[in-house]
Simulated scan of single mutants.
Amino acid sequence: MGIRCLIVDDSAAFLAAAERALSSQGISVVGVAQDGAQAIAGVDSLRPDVVLVDVYLGAESGFALAERIEADVRARRWAVQVILISSHDKDEMMDLLQDSPAVAFVDKAELSAQTIQGALEGGRT
């Protein structure tokens, strides 16, 4: 696959579990972040292909962070794709998802190398 991934979630337990699971499935997890500042720093220094961003990050929403990431990388003229993740129902946030620069939404329970690859190839899910 060769996908370089940064995972952003405020739960250290989820970050560890997702990193283990995705790494074992061939995704190169280049870093993790627990808030927006760490995420932007990670995007800038690690230059991942995709950033998995939890919709609910505490002080900052994943939607706002997705917009910040898009603006940051656009200013630097290179690309990264954002996939929003959550354990909450996609239907609850459909309007926000449609207005987001994220390429897709993936339920945390379905997070896998296959769902990431599918989201990157197929766009919005």
Rank of each mutant, 00 (worst) to 15 (best):
residue 39 A to Y: 09
residue 48 P to S: 08
residue 66 A to M: 00
residue 112 S to C: 07
residue 53 V to E: 05
residue 17 A to D: 00
residue 4 R to T: 12
residue 107 D to C: 08
residue 7 I to R: 11
residue 52 L to P: 02
residue 111 L to E: 01
residue 87 S to E: 13
residue 96 L to H: 10
residue 115 T to C: 05
residue 64 A to F: 03
residue 23 S to K: 15
residue 115 T to R: 08
residue 2 G to F: 02
residue 107 D to H: 14
residue 40 I to P: 00
residue 118 G to S: 10
residue 30 V to Y: 09
residue 93 M to E: 06
residue 54 D to I: 01
residue 77 R to H: 14
residue 79 A to V: 15
residue 20 R to Q: 07
residue 13 A to R: 15
residue 59 A to L: 13
residue 24 S to H: 13
residue 32 V to R: 13
residue 61 S to Q: 11
residue 75 A to E: 13
residue 8 V to S: 09
residue 94 M to H: 13
residue 124 R to I: 08
residue 116 I to E: 00
residue 5 C to K: 03
residue 15 L to Y: 09
residue 98 Q to D: 04
residue 68 R to D: 05
residue 92 E to T: 09
residue 21 A to R: 10
residue 38 Q to P: 03
residue 25 Q to D: 10
residue 25 Q to S: 03
residue 73 V to E: 02
residue 106 V to L: 10
residue 69 I to T: 09
residue 69 I to W: 01
residue 77 R to P: 02
residue 66 A to F: 00
residue 89 D to G: 01
residue 21 A to M: 14
residue 118 G to P: 02
residue 34 Q to I: 12
residue 104 A to P: 07
residue 17 A to N: 09
residue 33 A to V: 07
residue 119 A to G: 15
residue 84 L to K: 06
residue 44 D to G: 10
residue 41 A to D: 06
residue 34 Q to M: 15
residue 88 H to K: 15
residue 32 V to N: 12
residue 49 D to A: 07
residue 67 E to G: 09
residue 33 A to G: 06
residue 13 A to V: 15
residue 96 L to N: 01
residue 56 Y to W: 14
residue 18 A to C: 08
residue 20 R to H: 13
residue 72 D to F: 06
residue 4 R to E: 12
